[in-house]
Amino acid sequence: MKPISISVLTVCGIDELPNHGTLGVTHVLSLIDPGSPALEAFQNYDSHHRITLNFHDIIEPLDGKVMPGPEHVAEVLQFGEELAASREARSDGHLLVHCHMGVSRSTAAMLTLLAQVHPGETEDRLFARLREIRPQAWPNSIMIGYADDLLGREGRLTAALRRHYGHRIKHDPEVADWMARLGRRREVEMAAD
């Protein structure tokens, strides 16, 4: 894939969106729950290209909730292809990826885009890049699993995710309790040294 000519990469939560309205955001990937109200913060943004994907931030099926599926991750990759295709029409860009809190869905999507743009980069380096962008990243494991398959990474993204979880817990032990309370105990148990 050719470079996407994006020099600024941002991940945030909904409550942080107003802080980015004057920062020249050119592309937005919104990952929000189905039925979420329109996000008024974008009314204060300059003209930008935005797509919205609607699914819940869950890792186990729950009644009335939409699980992340391979089709959602394929749409993230399609968004990446559109970024690459639009490169000739712009000199630079600022990509903002957000979900509700800027921790799980958005960081999984950003990691997916990084892996797409840098196919030769090691998976651990991709996660290090992600931590530089969003230190509190705890990517949704279901989404990373689909990205692993769709990008032909043969399990290496998932293995690196385990190490990333271990890194996060080592540097912020309270995150393990927080994730367990959110129904993400399986991801906490995935953590590796």
Rank of each mutant, 00 (worst) to 15 (best):
K2E: 11
P3N: 08
I6E: 06
V8D: 12
C12V: 13
D15V: 08
D15N: 06
L17F: 03
P18V: 07
H20F: 15
G24N: 08
T26Q: 06
T26L: 07
H27G: 04
H27V: 05
V28P: 07
L31D: 10
I32D: 08
D33F: 01
D33P: 00
G35Y: 02
S36K: 04
L39S: 03
L39Q: 14
A41F: 04
Y45E: 09
Y45G: 08
S47V: 04
T52D: 13
L53R: 07
H56Y: 12
D57P: 00
I58F: 10
I59Q: 11
M67K: 01
P68V: 09
P68M: 05
E71N: 11
V73Y: 00
E75H: 07
L77T: 02
E82Y: 10
L83C: 09
R87I: 06
E88P: 00
A89F: 06
R90V: 12
D92T: 05
D92V: 01
G93A: 07
L95M: 10
V97P: 04
H98Y: 15
H100Y: 13
H100K: 06
S104M: 04
S104T: 08
R105A: 01
R105V: 00
S106C: 03
A109H: 05
L111K: 04
L114P: 02
L114G: 04
L114R: 09
V117C: 04
D124W: 00
R125W: 03
L126M: 13
R129Q: 15
L130W: 11
L130T: 12
L130Q: 09
R131W: 01
E132K: 09
E132W: 03
I133C: 09
R134W: 13
R134T: 11
A137V: 03
P139S: 03
M143T: 04
D149A: 02
E154G: 05
G155S: 10
R156M: 08
R162L: 01
R162H: 12
Y165R: 14
G166Y: 05
G166I: 11
I169M: 06
P173C: 10
A176C: 14
M179Y: 03
L182N: 15
L182H: 14
R185N: 09
R186N: 12
V188I: 14
M190N: 07
